[in-house]
Design a protein around this nucleic acid. Structure first.
Length: 233
DNA sequence: GAGGAGATCGTCT
DNA sequence: GACGATCTCCTCT
């Protein structure tokens, strides 16, 4: 019998970690190409993973909505560093948001991760989000009488649809993860390519900002149910 | 299902 | 002191 959990773990281990050069480009290109890639968090011996289905590009000094627009501060210093590093900030007194720095040092540009489709460690991520996981009673007469964890589609969407939820599911905080290197497998937070390519990608205006609202710098996997806000058909 | 308001606190001016 | 790249709960339709 195939052990699906083991197979999945192996597939994640075999995925190619995205190299530094991947991020050393303009954020719109990086955001577009990050869709479908795997965001992987190592938690002890467990791997938590999701497939990126929504992100946004922020263009530094050329973008009034970007954190880097007004220059470097202690808060956004990571964005002005080398490409491929995690920039985590706290917002609205409740939530963390995860970005990756792009372009060469000094540009202040990056990509905000907005949503991912849960792939591995789903029970752990649901628990981190405070989602109760009901269990299905085993069929009578079944040899292995364990209850089966069962999440509805609506509960799955609540795990990582939205930037704050994503961070909570992966237990990402500024204190622990700001400045982590996404390009190193030794890092406990990295991005990898398992060969998956989304069929259709759509570009829309960004969400929740009041400046440069019309720029189509939000990228989503069209038709994916884990995209936040209004579903893109 | 859609829309509005409140929660809550770090960051910047 | 004001603002904010959000989320959740509540109300209304």
């Amino acid at each position: 019998m195939v052990n699906l959990a083991k197979e999945l773990h192996l597939a994640l281990r075999n995925a190619t970690v995205l190299p530094r050069e991947f991020y050393n480009r303009d954020p719109a290109t990086v955001a577009h190409e990050l869709l479908g890639k795997l965001l992987i968090r190592r938690a002890g011996r467990k791997l938590l993973a999701g497939r990126i289905v929504e992100d946004e590009a922020y263009l530094g000094a050329n973008d009034p909505a970007a954190h880097g627009f007004s220059g470097m501060t202690p808060r956004n210093a990571i964005l002005f560093g080398p490409p491929g590093f995690a920039y985590v900030y706290f917002i609205y007194g409740n939530h963390y948001c995860l970005n990756v720095s792009c372009m060469p040092e000094g540009c202040g540009e990056g990509v905000l991760f907005r949503a991912m489709e849960p792939v591995a460690g789903i029970e752990e991520m649901a628990a981190a989000r405070g989602i109760d996981i009901p269990t299905l009673a085993p069929k009578s007469g079944a040899r292995m009488g364990h209850p089966i964890p069962f999440l509805s589609a609506a509960q799955l969407r609540l795990i990582s649809t939205g930037p704050g939820r994503m961070c909570e599911a992966l237990d990402i905080t500024r204190e622990r993860d700001n400045g982590k290197d996404f390009t190193s497998r030794r890092s406990d937070l990295y991005l990898a390519d398992d060969g998956y390519r989304p069929e259709r990608i759509a570009a829309t205006p960004r969400i929740g900002i009041k400046k440069a609202m019309d720029e189509p710098l939000r990228f989503v996997v069209a038709g994916n149910p884990y995209v936040s806000g209004k579903r893109v058909p």
